[in-house]
Nucleic acid binder design. Structure first.
Lengths: 244, 244
DNA sequence: TTTATAAGTGTTTTATTTACATTTTTAAAA
DNA sequence: TTTTAAAAATGTAAATAAAACACTTATAAA
C-alpha cells in the first residue's frame, strides 16, 4: 500500500503525486450549532433544498475545498449559510460509514459551534429554511446526523465542566440565573442555586457590574461579564483549571 | 456549493454522484501506538522506507480504501504493519493543514492504540523498521506527527482517569506496583502508594489472585486481574463511573 | 543468621461537595 | 399608600473525598 510511485503525475500540482494509486474521497464538514436564548439550549437545523433527502431536516454542512483546511471549511460553511462569523468552533469526530450518505461516498468531520441566539441576526443564504429547535424537541435528521448530535451533546457537557466555553452561548452581560439556566440545560439536571453561585464566585473570573437586568423580576438581577483576560492570566500563571 | 447536479455520473457506482463538482482528497489514518512494558510508557514508530521523507521516523499509517470505514482502516493498518489484531483503538482528531504532507494533499485521521508490549509478538511486514521508544525519548517525527502524539497523550491521560482503558496496556495478570507505574507514566507524575491502592480497591473491579509475581522482590507481589464482567455490570446497573 | 529490598497496610488532616431556608427588593395590584 | 407577589441574594453545618504520612512483613541471597 505504501510503495513508491514513480509514474508521471497526471495533475498540475507543484508536488509529485506520491500516492497516486490511492482512493480519493469527498470530505464534508457538518456543524452542530448550539444556541442559547437565556432559557433553553437550542440547535440550528436547516431543511435541505437539494438532493438527496431534499426537504428533510439536516445539520448545516458543506464540502472541504482544495485551498482550505477543515477548520476554515467549518468557518466558511457557517458563515455562508448563516452569515455568522467569529463563532466558537471545535472539531468533534469524523464519520465514515460506507453508506452514510446515499448520494456518494462521503466522509464527514463534525464540528460544534456555540452562539448566543439573541445577539446574532442571521443573513445567510439559508435563513428562510433554517430553524432553531429546542434541544429536546429536535426532529429526526438525515444520515448519521442524530448520532453526531448525541456525541456533540456529550462533548459540550464535558467541555462546559472543564473550560469556560459556556460564555460563548451567553450575551456579553448576563445574570447568574441565566448562567445557571445554561448549565442546567447543558448538563440536563437541576442545580442548587446557592451552591452554583458559590462555585462560580470561587472561580473568580466574573466581573459583577453595577447594572441590573429588570426584565425578569421586580427586584432586578445584577449583570456579570466574563473576565477573559483574568481567566487567561490565571491559566498561564498558576495553571488554573476552570472546573464546575 | 450545494446545488443539485443532474449531469450523467461518470463512475460505475450504484449511486448517482450528486456531489460531482466537489474536490476529492486522500484520507489517511495514522496510529499512535502506546505500549507499556511494566515499567514505562512506550510508543511504536517506524522508519519510513518510501518517499517522501524516506528514512525518517513516523507514525504507522495508511490510506482509507473505498470498501472500509475509518475504524476498519485503522485496524487494517495496524494489523498489516505489525501483525497485531484485536487491539484497543480510539479515534482522536483529524488533521488537515494544506501542506501537512508534502507528497500530496492528504487529510489524516489520528487514532490511538493501546497494547501490552510484552504479550505481543510482532510479525507484520514492518517489524524490522519498527521500534519501541520510551515516550520521553521519542525522536522528531515527520509531518504533523509530533502534534498528533501530544494530543494523543492528553487524550490518553483524560481517558485513563475516567475509563478503565489502562488495563489494555497491561498483561492479563499484573501487580499493583505495575498498575501504579502505568498510571504514573500516563499522568506523568508520582502517586502515593497507599492512596493509589486504596483508590483502586474502592473501585472494586479487580480480582486478587492467590498467585504472586516473584520476579521483582523477594517477598513477591500478589497478581490481580481486571474483572471486566463486574465492571460492565456495575456500569449498566448502577451507572458506575470508573474514576481515578 | 543476617541483611537488603520491595510489598503491604490505616489513620488523621484537609479540602471539597452537598444540603438546606430566610430576607430583600421592587413593580403591580388593591 | 399599603399590600402582595415573585425572583434575587445570601451562609453555615454536615458529609464525603482527597491528601499526607511511616512502620511492619516476607523472603531470597549473602
Amino acid at each position: 500500500m505504501f510503495e513508491e510511485n514513480l509514474e508521471a503525475p497526471e495533475n498540475l500540482n507543484m508536488h509529485l503525486n506520491y500516492y497516486q494509486k490511492e482512493d480519493q474521497v469527498l470530505l464534508a464538514v457538518d456543524c452542530i450549532i448550539f444556541g442559547f436564548d437565556k432559557e433553553n439550549l437550542k440547535i440550528l437545523l436547516i431543511k435541505r433544498n437539494f438532493e438527496p433527502e431534499k426537504g428533510k431536516w439536516s445539520l448545516i454542512g458543506g464540502f472541504l475545498k482544495k485551498n482550505e483546511n477543515l477548520d476554515e471549511a467549518a468557518v466558511r460553511v457557517l458563515e455562508t449559510l448563516t452569515g455568522l462569523n467569529d463563532i466558537y468552533l471545535e472539531q468533534i469526530h469524523t464519520y465514515s460509514k460506507i453508506d452514510r450518505d446515499p448520494g456518494q461516498r462521503t466522509i464527514s468531520v463534525a464540528y460544534f459551534a456555540l452562539i448566543d441566539v439573541d445577539s446574532h441576526r442571521f443573513d445567510g443564504i439559508q435563513i428562510d429554511s433554517a430553524h432553531w429547535f429546542d434541544i429536546k424537541e429536535a426532529p429526526n435528521l438525515i444520515f448519521d446526523h442524530n448520532e453526531m448530535i448525541q456525541k456533540a451533546k456529550a462533548r459540550l457537557k464535558r467541555r462546559a465542566l472543564s473550560k469556560p466555553i459556556g460564555f460563548e452561548l451567553l450575551p456579553e452581560k448576563f445574570t447568574m440565573r441565566q448562567l445557571q439556566n445554561l448549565y442546567e440545560s447543558i448538563l440536563d439536571k437541576k442545580l442548587d442555586k446557592r451552591n452554583f453561585i458559590n462555585k462560580i464566585n470561587s472561580l473568580d473570573v466574573l466581573i459583577k457590574l453595577d447594572e441590573k437586568d429588570m426584565s425578569v423580576s421586580r427586584k432586578g438581577a445584577y449583570l456579570y461579564v466574563f473576565d477573559k483576560d483574568k481567566y487567561e492570566k490565571k491559566v498561564e500563571e498558576d495553571g488554573f483549571i476552570f472546573k464546575i
